[in-house]
């Protein structure tokens, strides 16, 4: 099943229904554990796609494989028409695929604002030699980015915390910051790993609102979530993973009534 060797057609065909992200035959074993086994996932452009499965099903591992944080044993991953399974993680992020972590990771000893500014891609001032001769351009860019960060932080309600250390935020606020930070990177696709875990119901509602709003602005989402309400209310399509393998795929309603899925969740 080494379909990686097939040549990719030189001119990208522009098909309206062409998925933004396609992963096929993705596998990863940790020693004896086959964490992800020949899994497949498609994320159409502009949609919100859910990924569910019992604990230990391999969802987070699949995310790590998609972004190449962990190199897959095999499989083919195409993002925005280009194969990415060989690209280093930072290149993948620069292509427009931004992930969050299951346990939110913020840069503790940097301010909330700095966390946000860091995320902006392709900054002039990120190159050392530019700090010598491009100082005024950098200053202008910083100002623009600060305004942008301010707007995003206001939308998620973190604006009052803008100058606090990110490490001083609560768990839920960190989740918000992580998503806001992702937005600063102008992603095409955002991978959210359990955005609602450990978040109070009101805030969950808000997060859902934000996701819908950002989706309207053109960002595609792939969301891992155990909270079925979130999945039901947000997702256009849901993929189910169990023991590293695809179990089912369909609309949320279809998935909810699928016997296989219920069995996997209830443990027979």
């Amino acid at each position: 099943m080494d379909d990686r060797l097939q040549p990719i057609s030189g001119t990208p065909q522009v098909q309206p229904e062409m998925p933004l992200l396609t992963a096929q035959g993705v596998s990863k074993a940790f020693g004896g554990i086959q964490a992800v086994n020949n899994a497949e996932i498609h994320v159409p452009t502009g949609k919100i796609v859910g990924l569910i499965g019992p604990n230990g099903a391999g969802k987070t591992t699949l995310f790590n494989l998609l972004c190449n944080f962990i190199a897959p044993d095999s499989g083919r991953i195409i993002f925005d028409g280009k194969p990415i399974e060989k690209l280093p993680p930072h290149e993948i992020a620069l292509q427009g695929m931004i992930r969050t972590f299951q346990v939110a990771r913020v840069l503790s000893r940097m301010s909330v604002l700095e966390n946000m500014l860091l995320a902006a891609p392709q900054q002039t001032g990120e190159k050392l030699h530019n700090t010598f001769f491009q100082a005024h351009i950098i200053r202008k860019e910083e100002k623009r980015l600060k305004e942008k960060a301010q707007v995003i932080l206001e939308s998620v309600g973190l604006a009052p915390k803008i100058n606090d250390y990110a490490g001083a935020l609560s768990g839920g606020q960190r989740k918000l910051l992580e998503m806001a930070r992702g937005l600063m990177a102008d992603p095409k696709l955002m991978l959210l790993d359990e955005p609602a875990a450990g978040v109070n119901p009101t805030l969950i509602q808000q997060i859902c609102e934000h996701v819908r709003e950002w989706n309207r602005d053109g960002i595609t989402f792939l969301i891992i979530e155990h909270n079925m309400d979130v999945i039901m209310s947000l997702c256009d399509r849901v993929w189910v993973l169990a023991e590293g393998q695809n179990l089912a795929v369909g609309t949320p309603a279809e998935i909810q009534s699928n016997k296989e899925v219920l069995k996997a969740y209830l443990g027979q």
């Binding site: 993680p89 620069l94 931004i98 913020v106 930070r181």
Partner: peptide
């Protein structure tokens, strides 16, 4: 500084 704090985050943000 972000690398000092958590290099995985820096990587995830394209650095």
């Amino acid at each position: 500084t972000s690398i000092r704090e958590d290099e995985e985050v820096a990587k995830a943000l394209g650095k």
